[in-house]
């Protein structure tokens, strides 16, 4: 209005913080490349080595399939047990951590416990359990239960915090006890998301269960580790193909369950 003719008004404020951050990230990336000694020559040698490895992996060797099947079944059992127990433990944890249902003195310590469960990578937790309770599938199950609790209890709590408070208010106003409020006003609002989280966790537990074996916590990972160490690369590729098949089948099954709960 009163601005001088010709002087255009600014529609968007300049974002100096953003520009500085982007410039800093770009500079650091350049520095990191030079520090880690990446060169075109190193890359070319690497490609050659990779080709040699792939050559030794082909064709996959399924001759020792009983060993393979035994490992896979153990991994599957670890994944399913850990998911079932982890999800079961996460339901009450998620409820206790939801700040819209629980007073602070309950929610805050529960959140600390959940964060504690999540603070280590499953492999580190698996190493700890192997040291504590010995080699084998039990350590793997225990490690993945901890990982599951750390992950989905947090997602459960967040889903509960996002529900609409209106049905809660109505059910409370009818004189319902707290447990009935949870069953009738909270669970219906979060159930389909819970199923989604649980399936996601089963999926990641399937993958993690193939890995905890690398540190001696049972499953196909142990077989894979041994094959690597003996340079049986054709058996390695057979194991990898079997793992891929298991994950794919898991994906298809969880798709079915998800649709059933929509």
């Amino acid at each position: 209005m009163s601005a001088a003719a010709g002087a255009r008004r600014r529609a968007f404020a300049p974002d100096w913080t953003g520009r500085v951050v982007v410039a800093a990230i770009a500079l650091y990336t350049l520095y990191a490349f030079s520090a880690l000694d990446f060169s075109a020559q190193r890359f070319a040698t690497g490609l050659g080595e990779g080709a040699r490895l792939i050559g030794r992996m082909l064709p996959p060797n399924f001759a020792r399939w009983p060993l393979l099947v035994e490992g896979l079944i153990e991994s599957l059992q670890i994944a399913i047990l850990a998911s079932a127990l982890g999800i079961l433990a996460s339901l009450p944890l998620g409820l206790l951590a939801a700040r819209n249902l629980m007073p602070g003195w309950v929610a805050v310590p529960t959140r600390f416990f959940i964060a504690f469960c999540r603070s280590f990578h499953p492999v580190i937790v698996a190493i700890l359990f192997v040291k504590a309770i010995g080699f084998g599938a039990l350590a793997g199950v225990a490690a993945l239960i901890v990982a599951s609790m750390g992950f989905i209890a947090k997602l459960f709590a967040e889903a509960i915090e996002e529900i609409s408070p209106k049905p809660l208010e109505a059910v409370r106003a009818s004189g319902a006890p707290f447990a009935a409020v949870v069953i009738f006003a909270v669970m219906p609002q979060v159930m389909s998301r819970f199923v989604g989280f649980a399936l996601y966790q089963l999926d990641s537990n399937l993958r993690n269960s193939t890995m905890v074996g690398l540190v001696g916590a049972g499953g196909i990972g142990g077989t894979l580790d041994a094959a690597f160490k003996r340079f049986d690369y054709d058996f390695v590729s057979a194991i990898l193909i079997a793992i891929i098949a298991m994950i794919f089948i898991g994906e298809i099954l969880s798709g079915w369950v998800r649709r059933a709960f929509q």
Binding site: S164, K166, P167, E169, A170, V171, R172, A173, S174, G175, A176, P177, A180, V181, F184, A185, P188, Q189, M191
Partner: peptide, 29 residues
Amino acid sequence: RRRIGMVFQEYNLVERLSVMENLLCGRLG
């Protein structure tokens, strides 16, 4: 509270429950 019924501006029904289940919410006390 269970002797005092309440009707809300935005109905406050539990959307994902059936009409019958919503009615029975009135008996939860």
